[in-house]
Design a protein around this nucleic acid. Sequence first.
DNA 1: CGTACTAGTCTTTTT
DNA 2: GACTAGTACG
Length: 842
Amino acid sequence: MNKYDSLNEAQREAVTTTEGPLLCLAGAGSGKTRMITHRIAYLIEECQVDPWNIMAITFTNKAAGEMRERVDQLVGMGSESIWVTTFHSSCVRILRRYIDRLGYDNRFTIYDTDDSMSVMKDICKSLQIDTKMLKERAILSAISTAKNENISCTEYAMGAQGDFQKQKISRAYTEYQDRLRKNNALDFDDLLMKTVELFTTCPEVLQAYQRRFQYIMVDEYQDTNTVQFMLIKQLAGSKHNLCVVGDDDQSIYKFRGANIRNILDFEQYFPEAKVVKLERNYRSTQNILNAANAVISNNRGRKEKQLWTEQEGGALLHFRQFDTAYEEAEFLADDICRKRRKGILDYGDCAVLYRTNAQSRLIEERLVVEGVPYLLVGGQNFYARREIKDILAYLKTIDNGQDDLAVRRIINVPKRGIGATTIVRIQEYAAAHDMSFFDALCEADRIDTIGRSAAKLKPFVLMIQALRTKLREGFHVDELIREVIDTTGYVRELEASDEEDARDRIGNIDELISKAVAYEDTHNESSLSEFLEEVALVAEVDNVNDDNRVLIMTLHSAKGLEFDHVYLAGMEDGVFPGSMAIYDDNPAELEEERRLAYVGITRAKKELTLTSAKQRMVRGETQYNDVSRFVREIPQELLDNRPLGTRSLNDYGSDGYEENSFGGRGFGSGFGKNSFESSSGGSSDSTGGMSAASFVERYEQQERERQGRTGAGEQSGRSGTGAADYRRRWQQGRVYGDNVFDLKKPKGNAGDSRLKEVYGIGNAVKTARPLFGAGSGIQTGASMSGTGGVDYGVGDRVRHMKYGDGTVLKLEKEPKDYKVTVSFDGAGTKIMYAGFAKLKKL
DNA sequence: CGTACTAGTCTTTTT
DNA sequence: GACTAGTACG
């Protein structure tokens, strides 16, 4: 009767296989974390392994924290000496100790994506790279890809020979590394790569860690990239006491370098490896699992497994298709409220998941209207916000002046009258004398090119120096932040500004101070450098708390989480799977999307609801999307509503559907003609589709009414004149539902070819604009009419999506917009722009 | 040097 | 639609 008896057979096998390489294929919800924590306990209790010799690596701080907690509970004494961390923080810890052996200062700073971007922009300017042809983003992503494969800039240069484009990237890569080194900075990828480099060039360091980490466990192994694999291999040394746990079906981070081969080929790398599959699911109902299994079985490159559970049956999966994304959002909020009233669920049991962050806005708006408490996960990282980055840049500059980027960020924030030209001059001076930007600032009076601006620099330098003195006097991080705010007047400036989100920004700064206090409380020997470092590696998912709130987030963020009730919104071809994946020549792209769908479905414990919209605004353009192929890949008997023949125009086009599928690649089962034939009539309600004939009938009816009302020909120059014309247009993909569309003028050549493709495919994304304005049917929610009026006046009651209800105090006409002053019942008085605030009259 | 307006880009996902 | 970099002007 011990703690291992509660494990199932497969789990027990994984737990007790302690020596040699072990690949544990753990399906979703199969008790993976449980297995790992028990394995750690087993190593310590049954195999007399010193906790000191155990290492568990995860990807997110949150996962690490959870594992830490569970290990502590299970193991008790001595558990604190187990390394339970993320890849990135492990590397930081190692590099802080040894990176001087690679010629870096041990007090290096860590650059986030934004920092890298600013560096790259500079580089493109100085190397005269035409960023129209080759975007900074593209260069950075090429560099990142290279780094994830452990390709240094020197190696990259060798591979770039004969390729003009690659040579440019190569030069930028070299320069980028150079600048980072000068700034004593590492980017995220460097953390891993430099650690591998350290281990390669300093075998004695590696040996020390190998001696320490005799038992290594890696969670979410399917997300590892090549460098991470190299790192693990190095650490595992010759003993290979390496246990990797993962699920190839949940590999969804290819875009950031995850190499799915790491898991698929594990047995080739370690021929002596043992493989254990955890296929019993403790999370979801059989219906949900069947759906997940069916969808994922459409992927080719995978390790075969079938999840099963003892929870027979369960509720049918729900599917709803709506006319617009607005209605979809409305349904989501309503459904949650309704089920809550019935006592089926509480807010905290639900999550709404979507493919892209952009989709969150509508859902948020609707939840606010319905008064549903929610927590948005993701979007912009807290530490990436402008005001936070500004304050952190001050702290960095105080900590050490070596980070040019940080100094340049704050030199004129708040405004000190120091302009771009002055900054360039200082930079030139710094470069010429091979010194840091801040050091150049200190001797500003010697820079003759800046003339009278030098006087403005001095107070800045003095201020930083004064703050440094405070730091040396032992100021805590939070005190230092307050000091920065005070002396710079940062918050005062925000308070005075009429920026709409000034209050939010101040709130964020308060939040930062709280985090600093919390940091001080949890660290006996706190240091500014350490605080900055912790902060650099925090991702938003790490902050998910468990209040009773509906969580809304991307599918990516949801990995590793579970909820009783899951809503997958935006189940549309073109949204999910995204059009990028659909159009890509490489079928692997679509498989990655499908894995994402698998992840989404398997988050649900009890009920799963899939929703889609026929019409949705994407990047300012209206898209018309078919139901996601992933919905169609679910066995139809598992759904309470089937995706009926939706608007697959080619189903009725003269070419027929089959020949028109994308490049001949197959769709999942049940997709295509059959879906029409199997849809018995009578259900063309909000979830159903409509036959071509009835479309035309409806059009003819409308056309008769229109002509009778306004006289013929009013719009005929653009819209065509009759049913025959309509039918023709409809078959071309230019007519949709009640509306007639004109395909938007392609921008440039790329757009042109894309559109041709759209024509050919017919049932995917159709970028279109309504010709009959009123037909678009989209409520923007804004009270501004097109020409700049508002439908409310002074004294009226209005509603704001964030601040709630309030009374309009003042209305001022500005050239382009109205400036509205509203006294909100709960949020005080705010001045905002009408077009932006989207106030709704009550 | 700072502001106000314009044009272009963006969206996949993030440690 | 929203944001940002770039430009023209005060």
